[in-house]
Design a protein around this nucleic acid. Sequence first.
RNA 1: GGGCGAGUGGCGGAAUUGGUAGACGCGUUGGUCUUAGGAACCAAUAGUGCAAGCUGUGAAGGUUCGAGUCCUUUCUCGCCUACCA
Length: 850
Amino acid sequence: MNSERYNFKTVEPKWQKKWAENRIFSSKIDHSKEKFYCLEMFPYPSGKIHMGHVRNYTIGDVLSRYKTLKGFNVLHPMGWDAFGMPAENAARENNLDPKVWTNKNISTMKEQLKRLGLSIDWEREISTCSEEYYKHQQLFFLELFEKGLVYRKENYVNWDPVDQTVLANEQVIDGKGWRSGAVVERKKLNQWFFNISKFSQELLDGLDKLKQWPNKVKVMQKNWIGKSFGCEIAFKTEGDLPIEEIKCFTTRPDTLFGFSFLALSVDHEISKFYSEDLKFQEFKKECSKTGTTEEAIAIGEKIGFKTNLMAINPLNPSQKVPVFFANFVLMDYGFGAVFGCPAHDQRDYDFAKKYDLNIKTVVRPEEQDDKFIVGKEAYSGSGVIINSEFLNGLRVPEESIIKTIEILEEKNIGKKKINFRLKDWGVSRQRYWGCPIPVAYDENGSVTAIPKKDLPVKLPEKVDLNSKGNPLDFKEDWKNVIINGKKYTRETDTLDTFVCSSWYYLRFCSPQESEYGFKKEEIDYWMPVDQYIGGVEHAILHLLYSRFFMKAIGYKNHNFKFDEPFQGLFTQGMVCHETYKDKNNNWLSPDQIVSDGDKYYKKDEPDNIVKVGPSESMSKSKKNVIDPENIMNSYGADAVRLFILSDSPPEKDVQWSEQGMNASYKFLQKLWTLHNKIKVKIQNNFNLTGSEKNLENFTNQMISKITNNLENFSYNVIIANIYETYNFLNKEIEKEIDSKKLKENYIKILILFSPAIPHFSSECFEDLGYGDKVHWPIANLSFTNKDKIDYVIQINGKKRAILNDNRDIDQESLLLKIKSNKIVAKYIKDKSIDKIIFVKNRLINLLIHE
RNA sequence: GGGCGAGUGGCGGAAUUGGUAGACGCGUUGGUCUUAGGAACCAAUAGUGCAAGCUGUGAAGGUUCGAGUCCUUUCUCGCCUACCA
């Protein structure tokens, strides 16, 4: 008997080499087959892969391998999201070229991914920092520019003083830069914008078509797009400023009779009249301070600055209310002006209380009468309009809003308006390591597109990264360009890296195509992506931008067969690990600690007791990181894959455990021992004994279980199924069993195992004398239905016994049989059976009474 | 404040249409073995009870022959989002 240990160190490289040599993952159009495009979010080449990558790509690999075995023509590519600030920062620190740094990381990470045994078509590898890639991106930019979907405007931007760059609104978290954590400042700059808001409605409607997206993500995008229905109202003003009216957007025009003040953003154009006013400047400063801190938002203190203006209620011209600047009004939503109705909006209520403004109730709850008065908080629920002259009696909100708008439109006071929260996408970045924006300016500052024949606008090499701000600004020989004999200065901003990842899924379809970003024929075959897999942190940004890009490319142009790039989306959870701190509160990594089985100590310091913190997602700052490379060295790729899939459903966070990892490793050893036992049995030529029926039943049930679980992304259950199969076979193999049947079933089982542990399965397969070409087994239903059933016997709805008997027996026979059952007899003795509930092949329930 | 989701053993988690709750793994306990290994193997493991049994899926009600699953109320936790007019 071959009792050697399973040696992943020879087996895994052997198969990886074989797969590469035979190009078994290389993909091409084949119209005779149904295609399946499986895509995982491509990594940023930061240095080495981390456990999150291992999880993400293992999930994708299981799916790809399964679909391939199912007979699909699978496209499973991989590339690199290679532009971005870390490269620039690392290059600056180490005095390197970002390109060199990035390419080195790419080659390291590529080797690591290969060691995981991923079924990737490496012939399609792309890197967004390569000229071959970004030249097409520049062409797309110019196309969108021609279509009017790209424009330039001066705008307040979020300026990250540490990274010296502009951030998109989405990249500002709690008033801080998403990467640097620095408090974001406001700065006015000329910026390039993609007109994503033009597609707000389409992007919203498209969500309904995405049946295979997690609802959570769709809700997040919906909220982000933020459609609201309301009304635009122009309020006439009186005062010593040359202002006649102020426009507001409101979703509650029906509460107009409760008008009590009008509030403006400090950036509202009216603020220009106060630019000399020191008190106003002070107020403005105060606003920018409170606007960012978390406490300020939590407390939500409303502050205002009173202007000399009064606003007139258009429905009641005798009513005049004060106009304030207020800290809670945002310039970039609506018109940067709010009509305040304190009785029915908590925020307005707080403001009115603070400045002692009138609070007039105009909506009463259904169960109250017209004397209802708003008390200690605003009433924003449903009810009936009161104290509002001709609006009185309207039901809130079903008819009041729409009726009021009709009236306002009739009186020419306001008009219906749909407002979106989604803002245009600022794509300019004052950074070197990105895709150059292919435009230039003449001496007057007018924009001209770089001629398409001159693309790509290449990033200059050997720039001085130690200069402040954008190195491209100081690269004079690159900056100055002659187009058609005329002098121009190049745009020195580069594109947000989210632009690069907005179309890479198209590039994978025809990565070598040189004329254009993609070949129509190729995307017609491969697109859309059938299954996209990645972290939920991209639920809004990347996914929304990609959806926009697809629509923008298709706008007035190509006739695509699809309008959504990602048909299926799966968001996997994070990989977590316990955190450790020593007695001095310094973070410790897992390999810095030892345990005596009870407490943890710092290695080599027995008196330094380690505090174990909660399990959190692995991060360098908390040092709770496990390096996949070390783990692969110790346990091999299959064992890692097994573990990363086993402990939690893929959409939830998983807790890394050394013991669990070790168990997966040990399991493969056990499985190898079992394999060798089976091999011996197969060679011994036993004949039919009757027990093979049991094996066939099991195998066919397992085929159907694992297939189902694969279809439902229940990958953790698949691992349980693999263990279950081991447990079953390990017992069964002790019996005498027909060799032919054993082999036939075992082969099917190995195929079931192969998406999760491909090297191991291939090795066993070959060991039995089989080649590579296999198909996913189909469950034979005549076996999945067991001959014997465990019938549940209930008395008055409570389980009292189990009876194992033939399948398909009817109620009468079953009843007859259970009556002789000791336990049942005890219960029904001296009692009458009132009713029998019989579920075929499942249970019988006897209802009895005294 | 708003939105979404989840509560099942010591732990991670299983459980088609309502139909044997706790699959599978970890951990723990007991045992066997000695090529002392990253051991392996066997058995037990929701609680309680000697047992038959009783109790058990955050809590309280309800529907049903039957509820982890459906309905109502409620509590707790997690995630996302935030002055959106």
